[in-house]
Write a protein that binds this DNA or RNA. Structure first.
Length: 464
RNA sequence: GGCUCCAUCAUCUAACGGUUAGGAUCUCAGGUUUUCAUCCUGGUCACAGGGGUUCAAAUCCCCUUGGAGUCACCA
């Protein structure tokens, strides 16, 4: 069985890059009928863990991703780690190091000055004498001193890390007894039964250390997939300065979770030429072995395009429902279908769609000057008045075509072109030169509102 | 600086050594739309550079260059 996990450190919110690796992990587990676990890495900053977990759960909920089982908090697993530390101590695979921070620091300085790699020299590795007084020891693990550690990565291939150039006897427990990251990660992954670790590229150089721990404890090393980072449009690492990195900010901005997920799944992974992936398709097609090995840049235009696509293709009932959190309540409006059909293909985001709905449903307070000027050329106002008269005399108009007939009749009577009626009407009803088909706008507004808007405009132009 | 990773259009990417290097976003030009948007059609745009290996290289190897990550009693 495939078991994956997402193991964020509690920094406050779910990062867009984190969501991608979480998504990959989720898809891979679910595709194989396995498990997708969640673990909070709060060995150090225990204070934020509750909020962080909630923020992550909230984001997971928003995109419709669910983890299996209970959330694991590393801060609550101290005894487990302590037990393994003691085990390693007893087996002679780890040892107490009494070197003071100051001494360690001066050694590092000397090494740097000599242009050597800063590393712990192994002073207490085989120490048997009496330890110096007054120093709380840290626990170091005995790492190999030569040869290579091989990481078989599902994305990068097989990588050989030369031990001499990158490892030393690293600390697995601090002076206060608390375990360190690389130690607990390996233990938890092993204990949780994680078979496939899908995580960010930035953990690649941690992997040899974790393998040392796996080996010392006799655990089976999982399969690793190190996904390259997401860069900003300038090609640099994505940071808070690049605008939205918080997943939930995309909700606020009016992005649909399915669009964001589709965008992220395609950012670094592909399936031939396919661009649009439903949840079901992701689930059946995703394969971490086809993840691209180079880093990628976040590009807003494509997200916008995807978002527009999902808005456009969403059933109106569903769309109306999703619009509620954005402050749009169309419940009870008898023209919901017409309104949404008219506007959804013009919206890039839900926020945009709300704006479009408001523009349609709320009578214009101001008229675009240049638009009005253009629309009122010649005897346009007379045409508008003629139309108004016809409209006032009409009853039972429902469809756009009903209003269209009325427009045709007006210009037929006056012997003018369609533009003579279309433009003035457009400005009168919407206050601008652009917008949805004008007959459809009238069908949405109904006779009363349409008349009112025309009258307002006529009154306005009389004073201009 | 050491170690490691990465390198195809502006961007996301395809290519199982043999293709006129394909698709998508963006952009541009047409068409549809009384307008705008959508939609449709078409165009511009890429194998970082240099060496090898091979009948044949975007693809394999090496070097250069350029990016990135990481080197803690952080995670």
């Amino acid at each position: 069985m495939i078991v994956t996990r997402f193991a964020p450190s509690p920094t406050g919110y779910l990062h867009i890059g984190g969501l991608r690796t979480a998504l990959y992990s989720y898809l891979w587990a679910r595709k194989n009928g396995g498990k997708f676990l969640l673990r909070i890495e709060d060995t150090d900053e225990a204070r934020n863990s509750v909020e962080a977990a909630q923020a992550i759960i909230e984001a997971f909920k928003w995109v419709g991703m669910e983890h299996d089982g209970e959330i694991l908090y590393q801060s609550r697993r101290r005894e487990i780690y302590t037990r393994y530390i003691e085990q390693l101590l007893e087996e002679g695979k780890a040892y107490r190091c009494y070197m003071s921070k100051e001494e360690l620091e001066s050694i590092r300085e000397a090494q740097k000055a000599a242009k050597e790699r800063p590393r712990y020299p192994g002073t207490y590795r085989d120490f048997t004498g009496t330890p110096p007084a007054g120093i709380e020891p840290v626990i170091r693990i005995k790492a190999p001193t030569e040869g290579h550690i091989r990481v078989d990565d599902g994305i990068k291939g097989s990588i050989d890390f030369p031990v001499a150039d990158m490892l030393d006897d690293f600390i697995i427990a601090r002076a206060d007894g608390s375990p360190t990251y690389n130690f607990v990660v390996a233990i938890d992954d092993a204990l949780m039964g994680v078979t496939d670790v899908i995580r960010g590229d930035d953990h690649l150089s941690n992997t040899p250390k974790q393998i040392v721990v796996y080996n010392a404890l006799g655990f089976k090393v999982p399969k690793f997939f190190h996904v390259a980072m997401i860069n900003n449009p300038e090609g640099k690492k994505l940071s808070k300065r690049d605008g939205a990195t918080d997943v939930m900010a995309y909700d606020t901005m009016g992005y649909l979770p399915e669009a964001l997920l589709n965008f992220l799944v395609r950012l670094g992974w592909s399936h031939g030429d396919q661009e649009i992936f439903s949840r079901e398709e992701m689930l059946t097609l995703f394969d971490p072995n086809h993840i691209n090995n180079s880093s990628s840049s976040f590009n807003q235009e494509k997200l916008d395009w995807l978002n527009a696509h999902y808005i456009k293709n969403m059933p109106n009932v569903e769309l109306a429902h999703r619009l509620v959190p954005f402050g749009v309540d169309l419940k009870g409006h008898d023209k919901i279908e017409m309104i949404l059909d008219l506007l959804k293909e013009r919206a890039k985001t839900m926020v945009h769609l709300k704006a479009l709905i408001d523009e349609l449903l709320i009578a214009p307070r101001v008229y675009d000057e240049t638009a009005a000027q253009k629309a009122l050329k010649g005897d346009a106002i007379e045409v508008l008045k003629a139309f108004r008269t016809r409209l006032a005399a009409s009853t039972a108009l429902h469809l756009p075509s009903d209003y269209h007939v009325l427009m045709e009749a007006t210009i037929g009577e006056l012997g003018v072109g369609f533009g003579k009626i279309g433009m003035p009407l457009r400005v009168a009803l919407l206050g601008a030169m652009t917008g949805p088909a004008i007959d459809a706008v009238m069908a949405v507004l109904g006779i009363e509102s349409t008349l009112a808007r025309i009258d307002s405009f006529i009154a306005w132009q009389a004073t201009h």
